[in-house]
Design a binder for these strands. Structure first.
Lengths: 168, 168
DNA sequence: CCAAACTCGTTGTATGTGCAACTAATGTAC
DNA sequence: GTACATTAGTTGCACATACAACGAGTTTGG
């Protein structure tokens, strides 16, 4: 039997079978859920999920406004991506840009009353979809298990940024 | 107290709090995991995840080849998206198009030896990332719970296509 | 058979996204 | 206080993706 010494060390840290099953199911569930929720929200409200996310974040923020950078972090978008998204939503009247008096570099994104109205239309539809396609399929124990397990995954990702460093 | 009769019926099917916690954690975990795995694979192999997915699907297919439509389904991409992706991978020599002798409309995408070599480089890196960032954070029970719970979600999405139908 | 309906894959076009470079404003060190 | 570094947001550019329309080939119903 040949001895793949370097490869064997790599193999020792490769995923086992239940892990890969969970991983594939996780990917598939995400892809199908997002596809379905996006389609339903678009069909019934004419609203993309990315717009909905912005409206939710703003509505939950103090004074219904956030700085561009904070909003970009909240909706998991790059700065340039958010600039263009806010351009579009602003053109539709759902948000507006306001200068930050305390920092002349900064810009607040402010939810407008039209934006709030749009969110009130969309929220029941989106939440019904989350319940129907996600929540309704899960027992109470399932929901708690998913939350606690994936919370550990998220926590693990917060720490080590990358593999870029050679031991000094 | 006012009676929002229609809204109350809607409220009755809205997600409860554990469901929303699981949902938010699920979204956050997915976004961060994909971001990290994409960055690591790109940095260490110069390979996008979408290319990796294609190589994996082809390598697992009989004769290392698949029809365009089948491959598009497997990697969750539209037909036009796959056409352009295969253009790029073909230009890099990782796959090639072959006519299907049995159906002159059809095109097989065939894994090349260069593509297989590239996959052999990339697989340990990607799988190490899955183990490190996902598998290693989970107990055996966690992995089984995620797989079984999300499998139910996937199954629920396979059936009802949309809300387009009014009761006939 | 043949015409209509369908399927396969590609193309034109529009949209969305990130990276790098840029401007403007702020913070820091001396 | 002045220079250097840092941060906030926008823009040019390239790339990736979806939708609709299309041409070529196949299947189906009569």
């Amino acid at each position: 039997m040949r001895n793949y010494s370097v490869y064997d060390r790599a193999m020792a840290s490769l995923p086992n079978e239940p892990t890969m099953t969970a991983w594939h199911t996780f990917l598939q569930a995400h892809a199908r859920l997002i596809e379905r929720l996006e389609a339903e929200l678009q069909l019934e409200c004419g609203l993309p999920l990315s717009w909905y996310d912005v409206l939710v974040q703003l509505s939950e923020a103090p004074a219904s406004r956030l700085r561009m950078t904070d909003l970009a972090g909240a909706v998991l978008l790059s700065k340039s991506g958010l600039t263009r998204l806010i351009d579009r939503m602003n053109a539709d009247g759902l948000v507006q840009r306001c200068p930050d008096p305390g920092d002349k570099r900064g810009t607040f994104v402010q939810l407008t009353s039209a934006g709030l109205a749009r969110l009130r239309d969309a929220a029941p539809i989106h939440l019904r979809g989350v319940q129907e396609h996600f929540g309704a399929q899960l027992s109470a124990a399932d929901a708690l298990a998913i939350a606690s397990a994936l919370q550990k995954v998220v926590a693990g990702l917060s720490g080590p940024p990358a593999h870029d460093f050679i031991d000094p």
